[in-house]
Write a protein that binds this DNA or RNA. Sequence first.
DNA 1: ATAAGCACTTGATAAATGTCAAGAAATTAT
DNA 2: ATAATTTCTTGACATTTATCAAGTGCTTAT
Lengths: 193, 193
Amino acid sequence: MDKSTLNTYFHSLFPIQKEVVEKITETFSNFVLVKNTTLLDKDTISTKTYFLEKGYMRSYLLDEDNNEVTTNIYSGPCFVNDFLSFFKKQPTKEIYQTLTDCEIWETSLENVQTNFHNIAEFREFSRLLFVINYYKLNDRVIEMASQKAETRYLNLLKQQPFTFQHVPLKIIASYLGITDSTLSRIRKEISKL
Amino acid sequence: MDKSTLNTYFHSLFPIQKEVVEKITETFSNFVLVKNTTLLDKDTISTKTYFLEKGYMRSYLLDEDNNEVTTNIYSGPCFVNDFLSFFKKQPTKEIYQTLTDCEIWETSLENVQTNFHNIAEFREFSRLLFVINYYKLNDRVIEMASQKAETRYLNLLKQQPFTFQHVPLKIIASYLGITDSTLSRIRKEISKL
DNA sequence: ATAAGCACTTGATAAATGTCAAGAAATTAT
DNA sequence: ATAATTTCTTGACATTTATCAAGTGCTTAT
């Protein structure tokens, strides 16, 4: 039950007192999931917020042609949440799955609510987490709208180089919005240079 | 200074007492902007949160080839915010511009902070606004990654039909991540059916 | 250790979308 | 009302990406 990574994450995002962080993380409990396990399934309601301490995960869904669309790739340490399901108590549209063995912390919505309304620093932290996630997504939309596949690939390679050592290329391809054949060809082209 | 639309917006998103909403909107003041005016310029820090009561706006940026990339189209009534700039006090990367004459309300970060930390219902409202905006963006990424241009166009037409009566097609095209030529051809194809 | 199942690559071809340039149509300014 | 500007359309052609199918190699389960 070593919460040092979890606690450090709070400090890294927002200046906040050690005692306050310990109060916030008091209710978090941890568990381990092996590779290829579903953490949160489609059409269920997320009652927990998750912190991925170590390992890789993804969220994905199936489009109308039954192709997998990877919506996010998570590399710990980071929070993993289906915000809509968790806060609005709606069924998820996406599946959250481990891509490697993972170490995860969780706490309930009730605990989040208590902290959100009673600890000013947690409120600020929560909002900041939203802002950061929102802008990552925004940057991705801009990329998708304006950059070609090769550029998106090179950006991802620069931003998350370690992901490529743990996540299959076909999943990375679907995250980039291209087929695995196209990604394979892009990589071939680049390796020629 | 009729705040009824603004106040109603709060109620529509989240059950909240009339008196509490009036307290929250107390500090909002209004103004009018004519078509094609910049509300928030690139590289400036957003010190206000905006509520677009009436009219159309967009946010956009220029990519490396100096093409406009429209990141969002806003149709009042709705909040218009550069969250990153407003909450993290960072320079915006995008330009926020009116597309028609607009009626806008604004209040300062200080007022938002006071309400965020003192009014539980406002905290819930704020978070909900984030959640909703986050998922709109998430849906857009999924669309961009998995649907072709024609489908994205038809979805937008269904979801925001009135936008097409007030926003030039070239802006809609850049929002869809395609060129205006391609949008023109898509519309021609569809009109044939 | 072997078989089965995935992940990845590659070729041939097709579909989707972009580029550039010109002209038509609509809007805005004088 | 006219001119100027911007938006929209269209054609010819180029580029990007998808599709389908086959084959290779790697991983996993028995």
